[in-house]
Amino acid sequence: MKKEFQIISDLIKNDTRVLDVGCGDGILMKHLKENKNVDSRGLEISKENVQICISKGLSVIEGDAESDLKQFPDLSFEYAILGQTLQAFYNPEKVIDDLLRVSKKAIITIPNFGYWKIRIHLLLKGTMPVNKHLPNEWYNTPNLHMCTIKDFFNFCSKKNINLFRSIALHEENVSEINNKNLSFKNLFSELGIFLVEKK
């Protein structure tokens, strides 16, 4: 299991109800069920992935977070997970609103567009960055709203969202982000992982 999932899993308390939005092939859901006794539901857009999840005995609904989150009642989960898909929505703001409506807390991970290699790529090559976390070209990328760790920090304070935990991931190195080291972490982290709650 990838490091990102390990970090997410560590943020989740045992015996809770979790919604994994964009759950993919269900690796994280299965891990949470087996190790944390979590009662989880998944929402996944790919039919192929839904089939894989079903074969693992996971309860996954085929659907799109932008139109299908509305079916879940208010606060029906303790955690909602959104792994590296925020940037692909037409309206990320609304998706976050919805996440924090259906769930008390949300765990959101973003590929950091402020990472130094991405900045260098754009600065020196003058073309849109392509890397491990952003594997597509500009013309076929699903990403519509790229943001940086700093952008997400600013977004949360503007939207009155509490940032409980902010974790930076660079390769296998995990570190906490705070207001003091924000600019530094924004430059040297590939991924930001945030545990948020409405104020």
Partner: peptide
């Protein structure tokens, strides 16, 4: 599916091509 979710039931859903 929506009604089941609203009831907090355990539900999976797929639309087959």
């Amino acid at each position: 599916v929506i009604a089941l979710n609203a009831a907090g039931a355990n539900v999976g859903f797929i639309e087959i091509n």
